[in-house]
Design a protein around this nucleic acid. Structure first.
Lengths: 231, 231
DNA sequence: CGCATTATTGAAGGAGTTCAACCTTGGTGG
DNA sequence: CCACCAAGGTTGAACTCCTTCAATAATGCG
């Protein structure tokens, strides 16, 4: 499928790349749609490609040996994912699933090293992308080490609202379907506890819930809570 | 201080770099010793340099707003650290402290982008290094999400033994001073719980404790435990 | 040797999990 | 069009793992 150069050009990852380099990069790419619930790749599969999300939203999940699932990250438009080769792995360590209709770009895995070596700007961008991810991962570790469940849930929702928040009449809505179970898998708790916390918040007017839906009504209030304000 | 090229050459980070590139890289570096308990940089300081640990051992810690400390990572010889610029940050997000006598190499921060852009192999290496860190961070998140304290402690100790294990008569010793408090800050628990777990393990012959000391006596047994074997 | 640092251990309490039962929602097809 | 029903959500009660606090013991450095 043909790739829209204008759309790609505007992504942070490529903004500093020359036109010539961008063209040679995109020449090897192919783009295709992913329907809700479909997977781009599965945990344990051979890593034949690396990807860029053009539109939509994915969740990247891991299943542990004893069958428990958790969400490694949410992929937002413009982000690279599935670059297992950068981790020196032959296989994908996790599964990428579309939570809404999405479009992805893909390249053969073996081009990764070549592109990075040949194109310094891409390398710097890739490192910055990974750096951001690393920082976010450390934030999650810190939160899980030191914070109670309620604050962790607040942090996750605030983080999502930054990258997927959409203003509505009643507040800022997380702009993709997300269940209590999903939030539980992002915060290391159970769907029951998430439900209880969200119900309590709704009673205090902080958020408005719904089936696979969250709307933030009182952003400052939620921020305060995430920073450990006692109520 | 003069830099030992032979020693640096053998590090994974530089093994694929040409002699000329390595020389130009090392020409800008300076090396110096860090005594036990001293810091290389402090959380919040302006990130003037990035570093490579030549020998010894560091812990990288963060203090949260409400005064709780936790260990972001342990830096082993040969690893890059303090590359805040890669995270697009002006300041260091954490504090790096020597837990034993160490030697570090440092470069001015502003050379980071330049080196990465000009030297594809370094870029690939740096990305692989960050990839490893990212993978480890995700492991920690997974463990904190899904595992009980005992298994998390087992994982941390096994991970440390891979990178800092030294064979002794009685077993594999973690080759740097590490307290119960340290392990607690790496696993998101309290020093009391760590103490209780280690005492129980010692009774079962899995490890041998001591002041700032851990020796693994039964590696297979500990591995089993980390994978969730019920006792 | 003295003392600060680190480690152990008991008891009480609490935050969150687990299990079970029940309720809501919205998409599908009859 | 609306009734059905599977997927998602709520809520109560019991339980448990871990924390917290406090008191005591061991270690090794200066």
């Amino acid at each position: 499928m043909k790739v829209d150069r204008i759309a790609v050009r505007s992504l942070p990852l490529f903004e500093r790349m020359s036109d010539v380099d961008l063209d040679s990069f995109l020449d090897h790419a192919s783009s295709w749609p992913v329907l809700t619930g479909e997977t781009v790749f599965k945990q344990g599969e051979l890593a034949t490609s690396f990807y860029l999300l053009l539109s939509g939203r994915l969740k990247v999940t891991q299943v542990t040996g004893d069958g428990q699932q958790f969400i490694v990250r949410v992929v937002h438009p413009g982000e690279l994912f599935g670059f297992a080769k950068a981790l020196q792995r032959p296989d994908y360590p996790a599964t990428a699933t579309a939570v809404m209709e999405s479009v992805v770009l893909s390249w053969p895995s073996n081009l990764w090293s070549q592109f990075v070596e040949q194109n310094g700007r891409l390398a710097v961008s890739a490192i910055e992308t990974m750096g951001k991810q690393l920082e976010e991962a450390h934030s999650r570790i810190r939160e899980m080490s030191t914070e109670e469940v309620e604050r962790r849930i607040a942090h996750v929702i605030l983080r999502l609202s930054l990258r997927a928040g959409r203003k509505e009449e009643s507040g800022i809505r997380i702009n993709f379907p997300i269940s209590r179970q999903d939030i539980a898998e992002m915060t290391g708790t159970t769907l029951y506890t998430v439900s209880r916390v969200l119900t309590a918040w709704e009673a205090r007017g902080l958020v408005k819930g719904g089936r696979q839906k969250i709307v933030i009504c009182d952003l400052p209030g939620l921020s305060l809570l995430s920073e450990g304000a006692r109520d």
